[in-house]
Amino acid sequence: MKKKDKTILLVEDNPDDAELVLLALGKLDIRSKVITAKDGKEACDKLFGPKAMRPDLVFLDLNLPKIGGLEVLKRIRNDERTKQLHVVIFTSSVEEEDVIKGYGLGVNNFVRKPIDYRDFATVIRTLGIYWLTEEAVGRKQEAGSSKQ
């Protein structure tokens, strides 16, 4: 199996959090490239604008300026081009409402950012492995069929 470079879109407004995610992903054995968007608008530009990217995984924060995380998710799921993207909501606080909305909009995972960095890193790595390895292809198809 050829290991392709994977692209990850990290939508995060907090630079510290972004840095921590990058550090954690750096420890991943998978070669990946991380593109950051610091707000919802930038995220949408990157996904829908000219030179739209097709990331293999999207880490999506909810508390984003300009366009909020759930709105971005909605747009992703409503657009034919991006419908099938793997999206993980990675957010500070887990309000039940948001969880429900998130899953309702078709997010793949809804994860709370742990304060403890060890846990933080573990979560990132687990998610990364889960969605970026070749097995993900099969999962992609699964996900596709289960998406409504």
Partner: peptide
């Protein structure tokens, strides 16, 4: 309280994360 918890957590995360780093 939502924003408080959210806003308070972020710096903590940073502290912990960068300590580990």
């Amino acid at each position: 309280s939502y924003s408080v918890s959210h806003d308070l957590r972020a710096p903590l995360r940073a502290i912990d994360g960068f300590s580990v780093a």
